[in-house]
């Protein structure tokens, strides 16, 4: 009974975690932008869902239809107009990473400032699908179950698209070696912009799913940036399967520790498995060593 509860809750939490990290693994692993404003963009998605729900009575799942394309365009614009100059100027991938950290660190404050001006510092949230669903004799929250199911569906769908289509193959080629990719006629700048935008769209979708069961403030983005970074590093940057599995592992471990040992030790457990993974595989579970 407790075991079923832990596995179910762990998979739900892990699915949401994986969703949170999926966009970052694309932005960082493929477009080589270490986006420190990632959490802010996620929170923007959550606020979008809140706004649609509270002032237009549009549920978050329907809201995804509006929010995801908007986020895609916004992130495409950020990459094309703001990040492209950095990409052109950077002599190497490492230099681009450093520049992108500085740029997105600034972007973080701009987005937070805008958010504070519009929404203020208050805590936001809305009641959605707050009903229990019974699975194998265990009650789980419908809102989290739906969020995790949608997250896993999107994650697996994305994984299949990346591994089974030509576009996906091209994207993975860029992740592995951008200069070699351009030799085989892959338009690296254009693909990078699209991948960054897709990452941003996934990020906003994660924000929408999170807003279904959690409260948030304009400044709560940093927590998600951290969590996403941890999962991306653990799974191997740019590796979708690695991100999904790392997210699930993290969720299961957190729930098991919280229930069986002490809720206060979840953070410690978090860092313990990351340490363990990085000691055995420094490039992450599925990462390629440089």
């Amino acid at each position: 009974m407790v075991a079923v509860d832990i596995i179910l809750s762990g998979v739900i939490l892990g699915g949401i975690y994986a969703m949170v990290a999926l966009g970052l693994t694309l932005q960082y692993g493929v477009a080589r932008i270490l986006n420190l404003a990632y959490g802010e963009l996620l929170i923007a998605g959550a606020f979008g869902a809140y706004w649609l729900y509270s002032s237009h009575a549009v549920g978050p799942l329907v809201g995804l239809i509006v929010i995801v394309p908007v986020a895609f365009l916004a992130n495409w614009a950020i990459y094309t107009y703001l990040l492209t100059p950095l990409v052109r100027r950077a002599p190497s991938r490492e230099a681009l990473e450093a520049d992108s950290i500085l740029f997105t660190f600034g972007l973080l404050f701009v987005l937070q400032g805008l958010g504070l001006a519009i929404f203020g510092g208050q805590i936001y949230g809305y009641p959605y699908l707050r009903i229990p669903v019974e699975i194998a004799g265990v009650a789980v929250q419908a809102n989290r179950l739906v969020a995790a199911a949608v997250a896993l569906a999107i994650g697996i769908g994305f994984y299949l698209a990346m591994t089974r289509t030509r576009v996906g193959t091209a994207v993975r080629a860029i992740a592995v070696d951008p200069s070699a990719a351009s030799l085989v006629a892959i338009d690296v700048p254009r693909f990078s912009a699209l991948v960054f935008a897709a990452g941003g769209a996934l990020c906003a979708a994660a924000g929408v799913l999170i807003s279904m069961s959690q409260t948030f403030t304009v400044t709560s983005g940093i927590v998600f940036t951290m969590k996403a970074l941890v999962i991306v590093i653990m799974g191997g940057a740019g590796n979708l399967a690695g991100t999904l599995i790392a997210g699930l592992v993290l969720g299961l471990v957190e729930v098991a520790v919280a229930r069986l040992i002490d809720p206060g030790l979840t953070l410690a457990a978090n860092f313990l498995i990351i340490l363990a993974v990085l000691m055995v595989r420094p490039a992450g579970l599925f990462g390629r060593s440089a």
Binding site: D5, I6, S9, L13, A139, V140, Q141, R144, Q214, V223, E254, V255, A258, R259, D262, P263, G264, T266, L267
Partner: peptide
């Protein structure tokens, strides 16, 4: 009688217990 860290986001385990 349990305590939880300030960063906790998922409360289902506490409520179930």
């Amino acid at each position: 009688d349990e305590s939880y860290p300030i960063t906790t986001e998922d409360f289902s385990q506490l409520i179930s217990a």
